[in-house]
């Protein structure tokens, strides 16, 4: 690891000012991603500003929703009574990620800012436009079985790895940030992460030096019918091949509101808006779920080694919606799927 200066922030404005002034400085949350990438020499900050002791770890009710602190840990967030009760989709998604130890360390802000797990990105000897702009994308015609099927560019085909963020996308979360000179702004979740386009080195729309202070969750009526499905190569402690955050609100026999977000398919959490649009006002039947999933995935562009993801994503959407219809209880996806047709 390369030498760096370390400071423990006690005042947000001062911390933001110091980081803003030095393009190579970084905030430090739980360190579970940044310290790892520093050991790999993928990231080499000049200084780390530890923000975990700042007063941004509160989880509290707001006028029309819930605010979760940027420095609150993933574990505390997933287990908070108000989150479990009102946003079970978020609890499930966080608990699907990493391990108990890592969730204790990881902060919510750090989670949103975690970087891709593309193996070319991690290997400093390989070409990678995200790590070293202009060197080319090793994965485009290389080993790309874990890579994107939607929204990629010739410059980068990486996927964004967070589970938590997939739920936040479905929940229409809003990211609150603070910049230098006490400037505050909020970023709707759909605008937070970005597609790679010509600039894969930029993961999201946060400006250098901007600190994530909290994430707001608007109220919804989706809690009773929410489900996070994660498909991976081993049943725990592995990143998703495909994940689906699904939530529904029904009115009688009709779908009133539906949210579907996909992980493991793109450079950002992918809101399946085509599928959602297709389902609104329709009956929550398996046939409709299937039709909606294939409408969304018609636009998929798989790479050399990941054609399997297209079919897998379609099936995962159906299962996640069925799981949500069954009350989001664990194991719902294993249950006989025909029972959902009676709803």
């Amino acid at each position: 690891m390369r030498p760096f200066k370390y400071a423990n922030a006690s005042n947000p404005a001062a911390a933001i000012k110091i980081v803003t002034a030095d393009p190579a400085a970084r905030f430090l949350g739980g360190g579970t991603n940044l310290v790892d990438l520093m050991k790999e020499d993928v990231m080499h900050p000049s200084q780390l500003m530890d923000v975990t002791r700042l007063k941004f770890s509160v989880i509290e009710k707001k006028a029309n929703g819930l605010s979760i602190g940027g420095t609150a840990s993933n574990a505390v967030t997933a287990n908070h009574d108000l989150v479990r009760e009102n946003y079970p989709l978020l609890s499930m998604a966080i608990l699907a990620g990493a391990s108990a130890q890592i969730r204790n360390m990881a902060t919510n802000a750090g989670n949103l800012n975690q970087r891709t797990r593309c193996t070319y990105f991690y290997d400093a000897n390989m070409p990678c436009n995200k790590r070293e702009p202009g060197t080319g994308c090793g994965a485009l015609h290389g080993v790309n079985k874990n890579h994107a099927i939607l929204g990629w560019s010739e410059k980068c085909v990486a996927t964004y790895p967070s589970d938590m963020a997939v739920a936040l996308a479905a929940l229409n979360a809003v990211v609150q940030v603070e910049g230098s000179g006490n400037t505050k702004r909020n970023i709707p979740f759909a605008d937070f992460h970005r597609l790679p386009g010509e600039h894969p080195e930029i993961d999201n729309t946060l400006k250098h030096g901007e600190l994530i202070t909290s994430i707001d969750l608007p109220e919804n009526r989706l809690a009773e019918k929410s489900y996070y499905l994660k498909v991976r190569e081993r049943s725990s402690y592995a990143f998703a091949l495909i994940s689906v955050a699904a939530a529904l609100e029904t009115n009688g026999n009709r779908i009133k509101d539906v949210r579907i977000a996909l992980g493991g398919v793109a450079h950002k959490p992918w809101r399946a808006r085509i599928a959602e649009q297709w389902l609104r006002g329709k009956e929550p039947t398996q046939a409709n779920f299937r039709a909606a999933a294939s409408a969304e995935l018609k636009h998929a562009k798989p790479l050399g080694q990941n054609k399997y993801k297209v079919g897998l994503a379609a099936k995962a959407i159906v299962r996640a919606l069925e799981g949500a219809m069954q009350g989001g209880t664990y194991g719902a996806m294993e249950a006989d799927s025909t029972t959902t047709n009676q709803n």
Partner: peptide
């Protein structure tokens, strides 16, 4: 505390 295999995270 809940886990990914907890039957229903809403039941505290």
């Amino acid at each position: 505390d809940a886990s990914y295999v907890t039957a229903n995270v809403r039941e505290k």
